[in-house]
Amino acid sequence: MSRNTRPSIGRVVAWACLIAAVVISLFPLYWMLRTAITPGRELAADNAGLLPDNPTLINFERVLGLVGREEARAAGGSGAELDFFLYLRNSVVYTGLITVVQTLLCAMGGYAFARLRFRGRDALFGLFVAALMVPPIFTLLPNFVLVKELGWLNTYQGLVAPSLLMTPFAVFFLRQFFLGIPREVEQAALIDGAGRWTIFWRVVLPMTKGPLLTLALTTAVWTWNDYLWPLLVAPGEETRVLTAALGIFLRQSPNTSPDWTGLMAGSALSVVPVLLLVVFFGRRLVDSIQFSGMKG
């Protein structure tokens, strides 16, 4: 494969392009951090260099509520507050609950569609596939009404309800993997007298750990990033998730001169969980894209 043993001009240019792409990918995040450690009062004058003249952590302290309101104002705050740990907890509950419950229940559903035989299976599965094509906003409007009618606005149950039990995508995705498991494995267990439940838990799930983790990661990323639904049904202080909180924080800061240093500190904090995900599951995440790609 090594047809270029010594660096040719083309190869150097190619590497330069690739490195440029990495820089473009990461530079905005660096700039976010750079702004977050700039004193708010100095931003108007000090916003061009690669590092601020007087780096500070005050912006993080004030979005985390570690300093008093007065001190925050003095540091360039708009008076808007970000009760970060509360919103972080809400985001973690929202993401965690949906990821775990949805993945498990959809695994059960996907298995039934892949392996069990029952009346109306293909019709029902067809309905699920059709639902894949429907843009979410169409069901979002009536779902909002439903949550409102149930009196679930600004509650956890209202927040998680629509996607807790299933998404058509998750069922569809896992069914494809269950179809790929050799039947012989299950047959042996069936002959030994094991029931479907035992087979599912003891044989099938352990064999599909990879796809399950892949799906769970994807679901976690999507749910963590979700904005419109949490903003609509749970904007209240007690149930507000991080993304909604950032949006509301922006709205509360004056239009003419947004509190950029505070906003960037909050934004930087909202990225931390994502970076942890990359650190712990980097290979898995990257491979997961390969997986979904193979389906095509």
Binding site: M108, A112, T139
Partner: peptide, 28 residues
């Protein structure tokens, strides 16, 4: 078929689908 077993496996997913996909589609 495995109707009975399938019911157990599918019940939660079907409930979610009926309440948060089918019903809102009709309502919409």
């Amino acid at each position: 078929g495995d109707g009975r077993t399938a019911l157990g496996f599918l019940a939660p997913v079907f409930l979610g689908f009926a309440v948060f996909y089918l019903y809102p589609a009709v309502r919409g």
